[in-house]
């Protein structure tokens, strides 16, 4: 336990590329990270920077990568099963088995985590109730709206009480009330010592909940630290401005003007 509590996630020289036809396309170009338990990590970057790829590698969805990854003291390559028992993954709008009901799906997930049958049922009841989904517990998932599906994904990522939670744009499609609840849940889980790895485009949320913000661009880390640290470097006031400044895209208003010109002429 003592060695595990040192670092939750350790990433060394992570590289990843996929081949598009015959041209190798490098997505991650050497990511190095040490993450302590009990932190909320905000993982941000422009579209195509490699955020989702990182999360997918950490969750074991992509096994084809270079570098060393150690999660909770286990090596991702050789002991991925032990890791997967202790992590939860909440993707954005991900696939679900559509013809199942939430109850059946969550039960299935619980069984895969070797949870006790009674325990599963109890938790499903309570969680569906708390997420205001109880009325839909026995309807098929293909009739669900985006936000309802996202709630099911969130429950399925948390039901086995994981130590690390990976989230890839988890608030997509949720209403304002649910967003507030999720934010509060994350803060309290972090206080209990759980690690949360949170990737998102919504800068306000990242700014408010993250203990530490990691900004990547073009497969590399270009900023790392608390919001105060980043703000001290960039003097920009909000994470949105810092983001724009560091990812090197300026002249937004000129671009907007050009776009409007196209419409009007």
């Amino acid at each position: 336990m003592s060695e595990k509590s040192l670092t939750a996630i350790s990433i060394k020289n992570l590289e990843n590329s996929y081949t598009n036809g015959n041209i190798p396309n490098k997505v991650l170009k050497g990511i190095n990270l040490e993450i302590q338990p009990g932190q909320i990590i905000g993982y941000i970057g422009p579209n195509g920077a490699g955020k989702s790829t990182t999360v997918k590698i950490l969750c074991g969805l992509l096994s084809d990568f270079d570098g060393d990854i150690n999660i909770l003291g286990y090596d991702l390559r050789t002991q991925s099963l032990e890791i997967k028992k202790r992590i939860g993954y909440i993707p954005e709008n991900a696939a679900l088995y559509d013809t199942l009901t939430p109850r059946e799906y969550l039960q299935f997930v619980g069984e895969l985590h070797a949870m006790d049958a009674e325990d599963i049922n109890l938790k499903i009841e309570k969680l569906l109730d708390l997420f205001e989904m109880k009325a839909h517990a026995d309807e098929r998932l293909n009739s669900f709206s985006k936000g309802m599906r996202q709630k099911i994904l969130i429950i399925s990522g948390l039901i086995h009480n994981p130590d690390i939670i990976f989230m890839d744009e988890p608030l997509s499609g949720l209403d304002a009330n649910s967003v507030i609840i999720i934010k509060e849940i994350l803060t309290q889980l972090a206080r209990e010592g759980k690690t949360i790895f949170y990737s998102s485009h919504i800068m306000d949320v990242v700014e408010k909940i993250s203990d530490r913000i990691i900004l990547i661009d073009d497969g590399r880390i270009i900023a790392d630290g608390s919001f105060e640290d980043l703000n001290a470097k960039a003097h920009s006031g909000s994470l949105e401005n810092i983001f724009t400044e560091l990812t090197g895209t300026s002249g937004h208003s000129e671009k907007a003007e050009e776009i409007i010109n196209v419409f009007e002429n």
Partner: peptide
């Protein structure tokens, strides 16, 4: 069924 990749892979199933 490419959903399997997303649903089964992150779970502790060998």
């Amino acid at each position: 069924d490419t959903r399997d990749n997303h649903i089964l892979m992150p779970r502790p199933v060998n």
